[in-house]
Design a protein around this nucleic acid. Structure first.
Ligand code: MN
Ligand code: MN
Ligand code: MN
Ligand code: MN
Lengths: 230, 230
DNA sequence: TTTTGTTTTTAGATTTGTCTAAAATTTATT
DNA sequence: AATAAATTTTAGACAAATCTAAAAACAAAA
């Protein structure tokens, strides 16, 4: 079970990009996908026809598109591989947070199912990659983690850093300098309306100030008491 | 230094196969390479032109070919990657000896130089892969290990198993059954001229019999006192 | 040294993935 | 509603890697 279906590198990259784009918008557009993949709209249209042919997405010309069930399953498997390899690179090979994406972009295309399940076990079934993004499990279950930007939260709240939107070396530097990493708990102490900067406090440390740009890119667990559903 | 040159998967596979073939024969032939790569002679000729164009080998039509210095360097880097990944798969992910080649055949094409050097360090700079083949170091130095088939050695000698020529599951089974693995020291006790089978003895174990076919595929360190050179 | 057989190369096609330029379609603006 | 602008698709081309069938070169045998 869970066989070893293999698509071309390019197809896999398309599937993955479509998956990410349709998380945000419902339907994906040709231009958006071309931008995400650094390719041309005409090339995207070509690929869409092939993916439709292979029954991986729903697509009517001029109407936008989105993955169907098959396509979503395939995309999630690639994301699983990508994130597990990123975790491996950071935790076992001492890579920095900002160095791993490119390499994982290649490793994610290595086919063997057994390889990735063994890697998962070797790593101790991690739940999130080095950027805080959740890792799908062997069955393709992808936990939906509600993340909220630090800049959107009210004063006084204590939250846990669970991800970063901007994964550049510069962003990494700021966070390291302020002793903030994934899992760090912090309290929002003060907001300066003048520049929308925040003062936050990490346990056992003096408070630090984060610019609006930084705060916007720090994602935290939304521990908000769940809106009751009945 | 040691930059990150990248060729296509197919070119890398060709370089590697040529390297292996020219170890045995000096000059490589079109047919031999086609057989090794499971492709057609015409396709090989096409690729040879491209590799010559890129100055990776010496080739005159109808005259055979062999890698030049550049080509040899490239091939060794791929072999380094292949064997390090094989070692990783067996030692860290608990793969069997006979399962790793296919997977390494894909992993070897992942580009990052830094990745492979970090992997090397993570693994403790192993000297040989799970089949006993030597792993080139970061500078591309590939130790020439003199290996001799068990069937070619005189009676009474004690030798150390350092490789296997046939890497099938069936061969693995025979060796495991007889408690022989890489590094095992054994003594050749008896030869039966009738079927060329051998009796060998591993320390602290009862002697076992190996068929001629098995013995031929067991490679051992040639501890022969070096022929003096002056 | 012809003849025969084998190896290698060429000629021409095919598949996959990409591109540019132009046409078609949809969306937004007067 | 007509026009303008943006998006998307098509048409046609190209590079890479492969293939089959036929031709060319080389090697072996008669
Ligand atoms: Mn990728
Ligand atoms: Mn990530
Ligand atoms: Mn390979
Ligand atoms: Mn090996």
């Amino acid at each position: 079970m869970a066989p070893n279906i293999k698509y071309s590198v390019s197809k896999e990259d398309h599937l993955k990009a479509i998956f990410h784009l349709q998380q945000e918008q419902g339907m994906v557009t040709t231009n958006a996908l071309a931008a995400a993949l650094q390719t041309r709209p005409a090339s995207v249209t070509d690929m869409l026809k092939k993916l439709k042919e292979q029954k991986l997405l729903n697509y009517e010309r001029y109407k936008g598109f989105k993955l169907n069930n098959e396509g979503r399953k395939a995309a999630v498997q690639i994301i699983r591989k990508h994130r597990l390899w990123e975790y491996f690179l950071v935790k076992k090979l001492q890579f920095g947070w900002d160095e791993v994406h490119e390499i994982a972009e290649e490793l994610e295309h290595v086919g063997s199912r057994k390889l990735i399940d063994r890697l998962d076990a070797f790593l101790g079934f991690p739940e999130a990659d080095p950027h805080g993004d959740p890792i799908p499990d062997s069955q393709g279950r992808l936990p939906v983690r509600r993340q909220v930007s630090l800049s959107q939260l009210p004063l006084g709240k204590t939250v846990q850093v669970s991800g970063v939107a901007s994964q550049t070396p510069e962003m990494l530097e700021v966070l390291q300098y302020n002793h903030i990493q994934l899992g760090t708990r912090l309290e929002i102490r003060k907001k300066f309306p003048f520049d929308d900067s925040l003062e936050v406090k990490v346990r056992n440390r003096p408070p630090v100030t984060l610019s609006a740009q930084v705060a916007k890119n720090v994602l935290v667990n939304d521990d908000e008491p769940q809106t009751e559903r009945r």
